[in-house]
Amino acid sequence: MRPMQREPHILLGLRADQFRHPVDLQATRSLQQLPGLGLLIQNLLGSTAEQVFYLDNIASSIQINEHQLPEIHQLLVQACRILDLEVPQLYVRQNPVPNAYTFAMQGKKPFIVLHSSLLDLLEPPEIQAVLAHELGHLKCNHGVYLTMANILMLSTSLIPFGGLFYQALQDQLMHWVRCAEFTCDRAALLVTQEAKTVISVLMKLCGGSPQLAAKLNVDAFLEQARTYDELDDDLWQVELKQMQNVGRTHPLPVLRAREIDRWFRSNTYQQILELHG
């Protein structure tokens, strides 16, 4: 007989600055100081762009609600209650690559999209961890920068500037995206309130499949993450680690697993639960 799962703490009044990762805060401040950023946001993320993304999504995906896949909708509703957020729209889209993403341009009509293959790979608590991760972007107002990063990656022809400005902006945005992911992993932990659930998601996205998922070992993956974390014996290894991050949209899975394990054991995490629980 499986033990009964305890009810999670509802974090009423939770503020983004209480769990935002320091590297996210620093990267956001640096991005805001970049010359020309405001003009670029105005040009790329106007009302027309927002409507295009929204229409494409609602026409090509299945909206999840209380009448359509209600068990997944309930996972979203509970995650929103825990993070003290309004419930955004949620969709599932046919795609063989496990992924999820959030659109929230100018703070209007935010929605989350889950790929069908992600649902095939994860158990319900893990699906909720993914939803909470995406909600973290909404809680921290990441939406505008996230959407701009996606557009920059789609096509350079959309950029009204070129040369060094474009490259510098793209590099700084990709750095910001990687930093923001650490914050959203914390949002996932605040909802699941179990580090192994979040780490299991990272493990399965790293090397899982529907056939292998049930056989994977979270403790072994976390030990792998600790081993990687300790590989700083010389300067060359440190430089190789830095090179691994170049051009990536997400931090390395082992780094994310190690980071969330540390935060789970920290006083800061426990204090948030006690303060809002």
Rank of each mutant, 00 (worst) to 15 (best):
E86T: 11
L202E: 00
V201L: 01
S61M: 06
L273D: 06
Q271H: 05
L212V: 09
I64M: 08
M174Q: 06
L240N: 07
H142F: 01
H73L: 07
Q18N: 05
S116E: 10
I72S: 04
K215W: 14
D17E: 12
G247A: 10
Y145A: 07
L34T: 04
P251W: 01
Q74A: 09
F111E: 01
Q68P: 08
T268C: 02
N150S: 11
V198F: 04
L138D: 00
T48K: 15
D24I: 01
A257D: 05
L121C: 11
N65W: 09
H115E: 03
G38F: 09
L273T: 06
W176I: 03
L231H: 06
P70N: 02
R262A: 14
V191A: 00
S47G: 05
R262H: 13
L158Y: 14
Q106Y: 12
H73C: 10
I112P: 05
H137G: 07
R262Q: 12
I82Y: 04
P110A: 13
Y166R: 15
D261R: 12
A100P: 04
K215Q: 15
V246E: 11
D84I: 05
H175Y: 13
R262Y: 11
H175C: 08
L202S: 01
I127P: 00
H133E: 04
Q211D: 13
E71D: 11
L85W: 07
Q51E: 12
R265Q: 14
P88A: 10
W236I: 13
T102L: 03
E274R: 12
D232Y: 03
W236K: 11
Y91Q: 07
E194N: 07
L190H: 01
M1K: 12
L135E: 04
Q128W: 02
L275E: 05
P8K: 00
G143H: 05
I112Y: 00
L216H: 09
F161W: 15
G107P: 04
D56Y: 13
K204H: 06
C179D: 00
Q63P: 06
L154M: 15
T197P: 13
Q51Y: 06
F182Y: 13
L31Y: 14
L39T: 15
F161M: 15
L190I: 02
L158Q: 15
F165G: 03
L205K: 01
L205I: 01
E7F: 06
G247Y: 12
A188G: 11
H133N: 03
D261I: 02
N43M: 07
F19P: 01
R15W: 08
I112T: 05
E7D: 12
V130P: 02
V191E: 00
L44R: 07
Y101P: 04
L212H: 11
L12M: 08
F221M: 07
Q32S: 15
Q26Y: 12
D24Q: 07
F19W: 05
E66G: 15
R186D: 05
P98C: 11
P70S: 06
G143M: 05
Q224S: 13
K204E: 02
Q128F: 09
N57C: 15
F182H: 03
L76N: 08
R186T: 03
E126L: 02
